Lab assay of single mutants.
Amino acid sequence: EMEYEEITLERGNSGLGFSIAGGTDNPHIGDDPSIFITKIIPGGAAAQDGRLRVNDSILFVNEVDVREVTHSAAVEALKEAGSIVRLYVMRRKP
């Protein structure tokens, strides 16, 4: 069973403070093209906020749908998102 969360982060000097993997051209798990959080960087915006978790998958960055995009398109969406970034994420319920 999945749960969904909308997380708004303010981009810090060091960016959003997380790493991603995945994409249609580089699936992270099997042939699932989802964009997954692979690392939360200590002291970064995501770590300070505390809600984003490793293995969360990002569905939307602001209004941009990143469910079926290449890795570089997801990176671009995050880069272009401005200083306030709304992430709509999905994760397995614990």
Rank of each mutant, 00 (worst) to 15 (best):
E68C: 10
A45P: 09
G44H: 05
S83P: 05
L78A: 02
G82A: 11
G15R: 15
S34Y: 10
N62D: 14
G82S: 14
E10Q: 04
A73I: 10
I29G: 12
R11Q: 12
E68T: 09
D56Y: 05
L59V: 11
N13H: 08
E10A: 09
L78C: 07
I40Y: 01
G23D: 08
E5G: 03
E10I: 07
L78K: 01
V89L: 14
A21W: 12
T70A: 09
I41A: 05
Y4A: 02
R67P: 00
P42Y: 12
I41E: 08
S83E: 10
G12K: 08
E3D: 11
F60G: 08
Q48D: 03
A46F: 14
S19F: 05
S14D: 06
S57V: 10
V54F: 15
A45N: 12
T70F: 15
K39Y: 07
I84M: 12
N13T: 07
G15W: 07
S83M: 11
G43N: 10
L87R: 00
H28N: 09
G50F: 06
A47D: 13
R86E: 02
D65E: 08
E6Y: 15
G30F: 04
V75P: 00
F18M: 14
T70V: 06
N13Y: 04
F60W: 11
A45G: 11
A73N: 12
I35Y: 02
A74H: 01
E80D: 15
I35W: 02
L87M: 05
H71E: 04
D56Q: 14
S19V: 01
K79E: 01
Q48G: 14
G30M: 09
S34T: 08
N26G: 14
V64T: 06
A74K: 01
D65I: 06
A47P: 02
A21V: 11
I84E: 09
S34A: 08
L9A: 03
A21G: 11
T8E: 09
G44S: 13
S72T: 14
Y4H: 13
A77D: 12
E80I: 07
I84P: 13
G50E: 06
I37Q: 00
H71S: 11
D25Y: 04
R11C: 03
T8K: 05
R92H: 04
V69C: 07
D65L: 03
I37C: 04
E76Q: 05
Q48L: 05
G30W: 07
R91W: 03
Q48P: 13
V54R: 08
R51A: 08
I29F: 14
R67V: 09
L87A: 01
I29Y: 13
K39G: 11
V66Y: 03
I7A: 03
E76N: 07
G30T: 13
L78R: 00
G50W: 03
G43D: 05
V64H: 09
D25I: 05
N26W: 12
N26Y: 13
L52N: 00
L16V: 13
P33H: 11
G44A: 11
E68W: 04
D31Y: 07
S83W: 11
R51V: 11
G30S: 12
H28T: 05
G30V: 09
M2F: 04
R11D: 10
E76F: 15
R67N: 15
E3Y: 11
F18L: 04
R67S: 12
T70N: 10
S72F: 03
N55T: 15
D56P: 00
K39W: 08
E68H: 03
A46V: 11
D49T: 14
L52T: 02
V75I: 14
P27N: 03
I20A: 07
V85W: 02
H28M: 11
A21L: 10
T70K: 15
F60N: 15
S34R: 06
F36A: 08
R51P: 01
E3T: 06
V64Y: 12
R51Y: 15
I35E: 01
V75G: 07
I58C: 05
T38H: 05
P94D: 15
E10C: 06
H28V: 13
V85N: 01
V75M: 09
F36Q: 08
T8W: 03
I7P: 00
D32H: 11
T70D: 04
A74N: 00
D31S: 06
V75R: 09
E76C: 07
G44N: 03
D56G: 00
H28P: 14
A46M: 04
G44W: 12
D56E: 08
Q48I: 04
I84W: 12
A77H: 04
E63F: 06
Y4F: 03
K39A: 12
K93L: 02
S14H: 08
E80G: 10
G82L: 14
I40H: 00
P27Y: 04
V85T: 06
Y88F: 01
I29E: 12
E68S: 09
L59N: 14
L9V: 10
I35G: 01
K39M: 05
P27T: 09
D31C: 08
G43S: 14
M2P: 00
T70Q: 10
G82N: 11
S34E: 04
R51I: 15
E68F: 01
R53M: 04
G23C: 02
D49M: 03
Q48R: 09
V69A: 15
A45V: 07
V89M: 04
G50K: 14
G50Q: 13
P94V: 15
M90T: 14
E1L: 00
R86K: 13
A46H: 01
G15F: 14
E80S: 15
T70C: 15
P27S: 09
M2V: 02
T24Q: 13
Y4E: 10
T38C: 15
S72R: 13
Y4I: 01
I35M: 11
D65M: 14
L16Y: 11
D65F: 05
D25N: 14
H71I: 09
L9Y: 12
D25H: 04
E68I: 15
S34G: 07
E76R: 08
A47T: 09
G44I: 06
R53V: 02
K93C: 06
I20T: 06
P94W: 03
G17L: 05
R51Q: 15
L16S: 06
I58P: 02
P42H: 10
F36R: 15
P94H: 11
L16F: 05
E5S: 14
G30E: 08
G43L: 07
I35D: 00
V64Q: 11
R53I: 02
H28G: 11
L16H: 02
A77S: 11
A21I: 12
R51G: 12
L78G: 01
D32G: 08
G43T: 10
E63N: 09
S57R: 06
Q48F: 11
I37T: 06
A47W: 06
G15V: 08
I37R: 00
N13D: 04
L16W: 10
F36D: 10
E5F: 15
M90W: 02
A47N: 05
V66T: 05
F36E: 13
Y4L: 01
G15S: 13
N26V: 07
G15K: 15
I58Q: 00
I41S: 14
E80Y: 07
H28F: 05
A47H: 15
E76W: 12
S72Q: 12
V54L: 09
Q48Y: 05
A81Q: 05
D32C: 07
G82F: 02
T24C: 06
I40T: 02
H71V: 03
L78V: 12
S19G: 05
S72H: 07
P27H: 08
E10F: 10
P42F: 13
T70G: 08
R51K: 15
R11A: 09
G82M: 03
E1F: 01
D65Y: 06
S19E: 05
A47S: 12
N13Q: 12
P27E: 06
I29V: 11
V69Y: 15
I37M: 02
L9H: 01
S14Q: 13
G23W: 02
V89I: 06
E6K: 06
R91G: 08
R53E: 02
S83C: 04
D65S: 13
E10S: 09
P33C: 12
R91A: 12
A77N: 15
E1C: 02
I29T: 13
M90Q: 08
Y4C: 03
